[in-house]
Design a protein around this nucleic acid. Structure first.
Lengths: 249, 249
DNA sequence: CGCGAGCTTGACGTTGTTCAACTAGAGTGG
DNA sequence: CCACTCTAGTTGAACAACGTCAAGCTCGCG
């Protein structure tokens, strides 16, 4: 990492050769409709934000941000899939969420001594931009609509965490597996037969159980005709039943 | 609720009789050192914020905010203790935190369609102020230091939720009970033999277990000489051991 | 004194983990 | 092309953690 030349993923030239680098990369990226956080920034503010940013490539398994370290940047994913997890007690990991193209994550360190709350690591090859968080803070002060979006972002994250807390602590295993499958389909893959490059261990870490237990529940769902699986491909064949299992715990 | 006359807790007159009501109540309240959220507001901004606020008394057990309802105010506690919890699946409740004098809570609804994420109910008699959240939003736009504090508040809440997620999902029961006892001592009561007007069921709801299990672990701690208990009074006699149990799960 | 709500204890059943064995598939080297 | 190896996935049996249910207890209060 770091010694791979920075490639502009839009024009496929190295940064040095690409005179309109900011225009063809960051602005396009931040203007994506998903990237609601940055939609209120002017071009000048965007230029300021991305000036001096680092665009880095990570290989699968590489750590992008390490929990409990201090770092002064926020991460914007341009390509690929990464997992955000907490390394807890007794070697257990809790995968809090997955992030993908145009997702934005502060790692919990903003306004908080820059101590990272999560570890973020690449699942597929990841290209992401590391942006100086001091610039984010400055724009927070200067552009009120941006500030509102940033606050909204954190409130939403809050809401997701509360839901996750309830799902993981109050439901039996089938409910938790159903939650994970529906999350992958509806919020990550956006398709029904979907394929996800996560190990069973990762999926178990999302569902607060061991990989053995996860596999067993998956097997139950298969014989009940709720899903089909083949390796890392999943198809939800009876979504209503799955939703019902999720709701009733 | 509501039909009890609004008493100024500082000058102990009803609101009507108390000409300097705002001065003697809200400003003193919001200027408390604990109330870091409001420390950057000018007097004029404070006047604006508290104009038209409702100061309400609740009896123990009464609901202050009900989950999934929409409400357009935020709550500032002036006196008493309240519990903030999520009503989840299968009739289970998860107590997320306790709030007390000069704590401030948005209920998760700010910038979020005003749908409340939590139920908040009074444990002791509670006096609290209900403030129009639209005013909070307006001040967020106008006073940047206040905006920073509000964001910081949410980031901190985020951090607490992540910790709670790890504590509740990755630790065995003794670790969770230890967490709850240390939380009560260090963040709510600020004293060592401490007394807390919560039922065993409430304490269990904070620790993600049944009241029977909570009692059993409490008993174990007692015979091991880590704590003493008598009704709702607790004394931590071997804090180091308790911290160690908390850390190691 | 008796009532009732909350607390405590014990026996038992269920949920979920651990550990070990086995399987499938992908890469490697002869 | 065929062993060989390595990793991830799967399965089963024993076990531990935790919940459920029922009974008994305590203590404040009328």
């Amino acid at each position: 990492m770091g010694n791979i030349p920075e490639i502009c993923v839009n024009c496929v030239k190295e940064k040095d050769e690409c005179g309109k680098h900011l225009d063809c990369c960051c602005k396009n990226c931040f203007r994506l409709e998903d990237s609601y956080i940055f939609k209120h920034l002017t071009n000048i503010e965007l230029d300021y934000l991305v000036e001096g940013k680092q665009q880095i490539q990570y290989k699968p398994g590489e750590t992008i941000i390490k929990q409990n370290t201090s770092s002064t940047y926020v991460v914007c994913v341009r390509e690929g899939l990464a997992k955000v997890y907490v390394e807890g007690v007794k070697g257990k990991n809790s995968v809090v969420r997955l992030i993908k193209k145009s997702d934005f994550i502060t790692g919990g360190g903003l306004f908080n001594g820059n101590i990272q709350q999560f570890t973020i690591s690449a699942v597929t090859p990841v290209i992401c931009c590391l942006i100086d968080s001091a610039k984010l803070v400055k724009l927070f002060s200067e552009n009120n609509e941006f500030a509102v979006e940033l606050l909204r972002h954190h409130i939403k994250q809050n809401s997701n965490l509360v839901n996750k807390l309830v799902n993981l602590t109050q439901k039996y295993m089938p409910g938790r597996v159903a939650d994970t499958l529906l999350y992958l389909k509806n919020e990550i893959c956006y398709s029904n037969p979907f394929s996800i490059p996560l190990t069973r261990q990762d999926l178990a870490d999302m569902s607060n159980m061991t990989k053995e237990s996860f596999v067993r529940i998956l097997q139950e769902f298969k014989v009940s005709g709720l899903i089909k699986t083949k390796g890392n491909s999943f198809e939800i064949t009876d979504e209503k039943a799955l939703i019902s299992i999720s709701r009733n715990g």
